[in-house]
Design a protein around this nucleic acid. Structure first.
Length: 434
RNA sequence: CGGGGAGUAGCGCAGCCUGGUAGCGCAUCUGUUUUGGGAACAGAGGGUCGCAGGUUCAAAUCCUGUCUCCCCGACCA
């Protein structure tokens, strides 16, 4: 993408009410725009980040043979009456009626709908297990939306649902999701702490949340510091689900005892094992050798649109965002400092086309702006690698190479730039093996 | 939902107390000079002061109502 074709507007000033650093940088860098309280548009540079987050989540789910579907955002009240949640969910649920006075709602979650889908298609024990997921907008009419997309009313969520024949199988599925979540967050570059949680409105017997520790977080978790030293992907299943960490509203915590420490955090994921809670009232059953069986179910959510904000909370400096390259809107920005010089323009165009052919996301800053503004914008948007073409190139064929997270610049000769960049390119190819 | 603020140019804000021709910075447009860390000079455009009603010769300013947004506390990805 060339800057001259790119719809972006960076901003120097945003309202003094914006306190959260991720909210501030998302507004300044032109990632999002608030439409009304708790409801946001994602603008091109922000949407690029969101799409990369989505892509990583999708690839990992697909590798686990979880089928992607897309359910509607608007649901019928009927199915929510079956589970008795139409009333109990409370004011967070946005209820609407259509022209025929039919009661509808903007879905805050999809357990009912997925159960209705399961009821229609699952007939035999041979149809199990079944795993489905989708990535879709949810609406929860929060009492007080705040902090930008961190606590929005409309937000993007990945929610997966599982159907198993037995309680044992369901637990195995749950643990598999647990491990997959650890892996997803690792891929996203987010240090994550899984904690035991009360299962709340979704209901059920077992539930874990996935938190990132950050001082500006709205949640609070307690855990033993031994947890931080372990590689959680290596520990045994039973150790994993009996992990000694809790949300601070968890009934059983005794802070201080057993050296539990308390930290502020952001919740990014939540998994539930709720067994037959929905299959029974929906009369979703399959035939098996032992007769009629209600499948055991679980649901598994990730707050997708919250992730870019969470990453910014963790990775930023005084100049702006410092994206991990996996989810950066662009991997490289080429800055042409002498846009009126033919030699520089020709070379930056060449470099841009060449790198694009390597399937990299490149932003070419071809604007007729001052050097300072170009650098400031590049740093604000957090692009990991800057290639700077200016006087040094004109005089000595030298290209400035500057990594966003290192805060220093190297000069590389034109003849060596490709081999230099190859190292960087290799470094950003993904491997999703688990 | 309780408590507290704010709506004035695209964005950020001042003006309001004490009523009298609507201002500043950034951004935008034109021109010239600039280009290795948010450039300089000169010029220009842009507003029914959230909305409705009231007081007054006169309302951004005072009064009433209303809508919206934001901030501090209990729920949630």
């Amino acid at each position: 993408m060339k800057y001259s074709n790119f719809f972006i507007s960076t901003q120097k000033d945003v309202s003094k009410d914006v306190k959260l650093i991720s909210h501030l940088f998302m507004l300044k860098s032109g990632m999002i725009r608030q439409e009304t309280s708790g409801i946001y548009s994602w603008l091109p540079i922000g949407f690029r980040v969101l799409k990369k987050v989505i892509k990583i989540i999708e690839e990992i789910h697909d590798r686990h043979n979880i089928n992607q579907i897309l359910m509607p955002t608007i649901q019928s009240a009927d199915i929510w009456k079956i589970s008795n949640r139409y009333e109990s969910y409370g004011k967070e649920m946005l209820k609407i009626t259509d022209r025929n006075e039919k009661e509808l709602l903007y879905g805050p979650t999809n357990e009912e709908m997925i159960t209705a889908i399961g009821k229609h298609y699952l007939k035999s024990y041979k149809d199990l297990p079944l795993n489905l997921y989708h990535i879709q907008s949810k609406f929860r009419d929060e009492i007080r939306p705040r902090f930008g997309v961190m606590r929005a009313r409309e937000f993007l969520m990945k929610d997966a649902y599982s159907f198993d024949l037995t309680e044992e199988d369901c637990l195995t599925t749950y643990i598999n999701y647990f491990k997959m979540y650890l892996f997803i967050f690792k891929k996203l570059g987010i240090p994550i702490i899984p904690v035991k949680a009360p299962s709340g409105e979704i209901g059920g017997s077992l539930s874990h949340e996935f938190h990132m520790i950050v001082d500006s977080g709205e949640s609070e978790i307690c855990f033993s510091d031994e947890l931080l030293k372990k590689n959680l992907l290596d520990i045994s299943d039973s150790e994993l689900i009996n992990i000694r960490s809790y949300t601070s509203d968890f009934d059983k915590i005794e802070v201080g005892k057993d050296k539990l420490i308390k930290k502020k955090s952001i919740e990014l994921g939540h998994i539930f094992l709720f067994g037959q809670k929905y299959s029974k009232p929906f009369d979703l059953h399959v035939d098996s050798k032992n007769g009629k069986v209600f499948p055991y179910m679980g649901s598994y959510g990730i707050g997708v649109s919250r992730i870019p904000a969470a990453v910014i909370e963790k990775f930023h400096d005084e100049k702006g965002i410092v994206w991990p390259k996996e989810i950066s809107p662009f991997q490289i920005i080429i800055i042409n400092l002498l846009t009126k010089d033919k030699v520089c323009c020709n070379y930056t165009d060449y470099l841009y086309e060449h790198l694009k052919n390597n399937r990299l996301d490149i932003l070419l800053d071809d604007r007729d702006e001052s050097a300072g503004k170009k650098f400031a914008d590049a740093d604000l948007s957090g692009i990991p690698l800057k290639l700077i073409i200016g006087k040094n190139f004109l005089n000595e064929n030298l290209i400035g190479v500057s990594f966003r997270n290192l805060n220093k610049e190297e000069l590389i000769h034109k003849s060596e730039i490709e081999s230099y960049l190859n190292k960087f390119i290799k470094n950003i190819t993904h491997d999703y093996k688990i």
